[in-house]
């Protein structure tokens, strides 16, 4: 699997670590190119290469890990009170929000939690059907409404259901929306406000498609402004894309990557591991 292969510049860099004098022969352009190819963006890539040139004792991997904040807390919010933890899942269209909700529900149920899913994507055709299939497979309780219903009302009902059955987590699946559509972004902040009439929103997870390019930064910025993003889920990392944009997002906005999606099966969601991610970023 691509995510765990070490090759290309990694070996070049480890050579560099063993023989500091090899520094002069390093093709920094090639490294820069590689970083750009991983979607870190030209600006960040140049910055990293400069950093690496200065600190030739550390490997590129170590430098990247350092920048990513390897000791960052990547756990989901802890359940400290009897109230259910509310997790809002947001993102642009087609990044895999509904699939992530299904997998996350499965992950949480498997760990012994009681989970409610609120199907607040009432816009996309048949989205409710899609999430209900996931809910059944994951063993979670579904709260849904009609197509075109007010998503905030469904979110509120889902939270109420969570209280009623004593759930540990309430996952709210929202409709995909481009961050440039102000009206739809307002709707999202309304969903949050309405939930907060009942309880606090513990976590807002921004789902980022692993193939996304530099536009991911614009997405993160606007979503963070609108609903406050507390974590990132990177999906579709089982393909050839490296998901470097998630690195750039974490670095620019401080929202830690918490999960990665690696396939279409219900168990294809794993807590983020910085070391493996960074290794994959710089493998060619």
């Amino acid at each position: 699997m691509a995510l765990f292969s070490f090759s290309g510049i990694t070996s070049l860099i480890s050579k560099l670590r063993r023989e500091p004098e090899a520094n002069a022969n390093v093709d920094w352009n090639e490294i820069e190119q590689q970083l750009i190819n991983s979607d870190l963006g030209p600006k960040l890539s140049v910055e990293l290469v400069e950093l690496l040139k200065k600190n030739s004792n550390a490997s590129l991997e170590e430098s990247l890990l350092e920048l990513l904040g390897k000791d960052r807390d990547r756990d989901l919010v802890k359940n400290q009170n009897p109230n259910p933890n509310v997790i809002l899942i947001v993102g642009v269209n087609g990044v895999g929000k509904t699939t992530t909700v299904g997998k996350l529900a499965h992950y949480l149920v498997a760990a012994g939690n009681k989970v409610v899913i609120g199907a607040a994507d009432t816009f996309r055709a048949a989205a409710t059907g899609q999430v209900s299939t996931w809910a059944i497979n994951a063993g979670a309780t579904l709260v849904s409404g009609k197509d075109g219903a007010d998503p905030a009302a469904i979110a509120f009902d889902a939270v109420a259901k969570g209280f009623e059955i004593g759930a540990d987590f309430v996952l709210i699946d929202t409709a995909g929306r481009l961050h440039t559509k102000a009206g739809l972004m307002d709707e999202l902040s309304k969903i949050r406000r309405v939930i907060e009439k009942r309880t606090s929103v513990g976590e807002v997870l921004l789902v980022i498609d692993g193939t996304t390019g530099q536009n991911g930064l614009a997405q993160a910025q606007i979503f963070a402004q609108t609903v406050g993003v507390t974590g990132v889920v990177v999906t579709k990392l089982d393909g050839s894309a490296k998901g470097g944009i998630a690195f750039a997002i974490e670095r620019d906005f401080g929202a830690p990557i918490k999960f990665v999606g690696t396939g279409e099966a219900i168990s294809d969601l794993a807590p983020f591991e910085a070391a493996a991610f960074v290794a994959a970023l710089i493998s060619s």
């Binding site: 750009i36 193939t211 996304t212």
Partner: peptide
């Protein structure tokens, strides 16, 4: 193809 795709566009398109 999604207009927001990054550098992987070429690999995917080629595949």
């Amino acid at each position: 193809v999604d207009a927001m795709i990054g550098q992987d566009a070429v690999n995917t398109a080629q595949a």
